[in-house]
Write a protein that binds this DNA or RNA. Structure first.
Length: 295
DNA sequence: GATGAGCGC
C-alpha cells in the first residue's frame, strides 16, 4: 500500500506538496488507477524506489456496502446544486465528514405523535409476542429488550408516566372542559398538559424539565470552543445526550459555559470527578452538577 | 463570571 487516493482537502494539499517536491522524478510515472470490480477495489500506483527503479503497487480493498433504506439510497440520485453542482455523486470529502457515531436527535412530540407511537409499539409488541415471547427488539440507548421510545429510563419513566396520567386526569378536568358528548373542545391545551403528553419530551428532549439529574455545568471554557469539542471531551464518560453551549443570541460568541447531559447519572458523576480542574487550552475547567434553570 | 432557546394558546 503506497500513496492513496487523496481523502480530504488537507490530504490533497499534502499530496500536491509532495508532487511539487518530486516533480522532476514523478512526471513520467503513469497516473494512479482505480478499478472497481464487484466488491473489490483495486488501486494501482506507480513510484520510484530508492534505487530509482519504477515500482508498481497494486492494493486491493474490499468495498463495504452498507444496507441502506431505499429512501436513503434514492438521495444519491438527486441533482447537486449551488457550489456543488459539478461535484460527482456521493459526499465530497473536502467539505463533508462522515461520522459513524450514533447521532441523537431531539424529537419534540405532540400528543398525536405519541398516540401513533404507542399504537405502533403495541403492534410490534404483539408481533414479538407472537414470535414466542422472546423479544426481538433492542433499545438503542441501553440495549435492553424494549423499544427505544421507552428509554433511557424505562422503569423510572413508566412510573413517572403512571403518576403523570393521574395528575393529567385531574388537571384535564379543570383545564379542558368537555362537551356533553364527551368530545374535546377546540380549546388549546399545551403539550405538557395533554393526556399522556410529552412523554419522551420529559425524559429526553425538554431542556426545562423539572429534574435534570444527569446534567452537568461546565464553566471556564475557552470562547472558541464548539459543541463538537465538548462532545469529544465528555464522550469517554458515556453517552452524551444533550449539549448546550451558551452563546450570545446575536453575536454567536460563546459565553464560556455549557451544559452537558448524560444518559446515565453515574457517567455524569464520573465526568465531574475527572474533568473538574482539568486543564483545557490553558484554562482550568470547572465542572459541577447543573442546577435546574428557572422556568 | 456565568445555571440554557424557542414555538404554540
Amino acid at each position: 500500500m503506497d500513496r492513496m487516493v487523496p481523502q480530504s482537502w488537507a490530504d490533497q494539499m499534502a499530496e500536491q506538496g509532495d508532487n511539487d517536491l518530486d516533480e522532476g522524478l514523478a512526471s513520467d510515472l503513469p497516473p494512479p488507477e482505480e478499478i472497481i470490480d464487484g466488491d473489490t477495489k483495486k488501486i494501482i500506483t506507480y513510484r520510484y524506489n530508492e534505487e530509482g527503479k519504477k515500482v508498481k503497487t497494486v492494493s486491493y480493498y474490499r468495498i463495504e456496502r452498507r444496507q441502506v433504506s431505499k429512501a436513503i439510497a434514492m438521495r444519491k440520485s438527486w441533482k447537486k446544486f449551488g457550489n456543488a453542482k459539478r461535484d460527482p455523486p456521493g459526499p465530497n470529502p473536502s467539505n463533508t465528514s462522515i461520522v459513524s457515531d450514533d447521532i441523537f436527535m431531539q424529537f419534540i412530540s405532540n400528543r398525536d405523535d405519541d398516540q401513533l407511537d404507542a399504537s405502533r409499539d403495541s403492534n410490534l409488541d404483539s408481533k414479538s409476542q407472537a414470535l414466542g415471547n422472546r423479544s426481538i427488539v433492542k433499545c438503542r440507548y441501553c440495549e435492553q429488550d424494549h423499544w427505544t421510545s421507552k428509554c433511557p429510563y424505562k422503569d423510572k419513566f413508566e412510573q413517572l408516566s403512571i403518576l403523570k396520567e393521574k395528575d393529567n386526569a385531574a388537571a384535564q378536568a379543570s383545564v379542558e372542559p368537555k362537551l356533553e358528548d364527551g368530545k374535546k373542545t377546540g380549546k388549546y391545551v399545551p403539550p405538557g398538559m395533554r393526556e399522556g403528553g410529552n412523554k419522551r419530551g420529559d425524559v429526553m428532549t425538554s431542556s426545562k424539565s423539572k429534574d435534570e439529574p444527569n446534567t452537568i455545568r461546565v464553566t471556564n471554557l475557552p470562547e472558541e470552543i464548539m459543541d463538537s469539542d465538548i462532545r469529544e471531551l465528555f464522550l469517554p464518560f458515556g453517552r452524551v445526550v444533550r449539549i448546550f453551549l451558551a452563546k450570545d443570541k446575536y453575536t454567536g460568541q460563546s459565553k464560556g459555559f455549557a451544559f452537558v447531559s448524560f444518559e446515565k447519572r453515574e457517567d455524569a458523576a464520573n465526568a465531574i470527578k475527572a474533568v473538574n480542574g482539568f486543564g483545557y487550552a490553558n484554562l482550568i475547567l470547572n465542572v459541577e452538577w447543573a442546577k435546574p434553570s428557572n422556568n
